[in-house]
Amino acid sequence: MKRVVPLVGILFFGCVAFGMYHLAYEVKRLEDELIAYNRALLREREAIDFLQAEWSYLSRPDRLQASAARHLQLEATPLHRLQRIEDLPARPVGAMADGWGVIVVPDPNAPPLPLAKPAPESAPVPAVPNIAVPTVERDRTSRSVALHGDPR
């Protein structure tokens, strides 16, 4: 018993001393990590500043106007097509946006869409699926109905 108490004591003190040492180094390491993170944060912030400046530079209205004139066939919007968003009619029940962002009202009499992708057939699939033409055709009509209403 007389030997056990000092031994336990010494062991205990040793543990505590190691713990202190370990903690001190752990704190130092965490501080270094924090400093590194803060530095990285500053670097990122700086990068954001640069990118924002670059974005502002690249989206200059005169540059956009020149690009639009060169690459797009845009016309001035006729007056009757300008409306306040709150003046638009409410979206019909069951309406949803298709892949083109056009609101489509499903026809209740139309056959239901397949729930799953059809199983691959043995016939060779064309490399470029020819889906663009019919989709565009359908979209043109639905867009004019959905957005313009009756032309004034």
């Binding site: 205990f12 003190f13 543990c15 505590v16 713990g19 202190m20 370990h22 903690l23 752990e26 704190v27």
Partner: peptide, 17 residues
């Protein structure tokens, strides 16, 4: 030392700093 040990355990085991 007990107090120190307690604080150490608190920092290292429970709150993790």
């Amino acid at each position: 030392f007990l107090a120190l040990a307690g604080r150490l355990a608190d920092l290292m085991l429970f709150r993790g700093g």
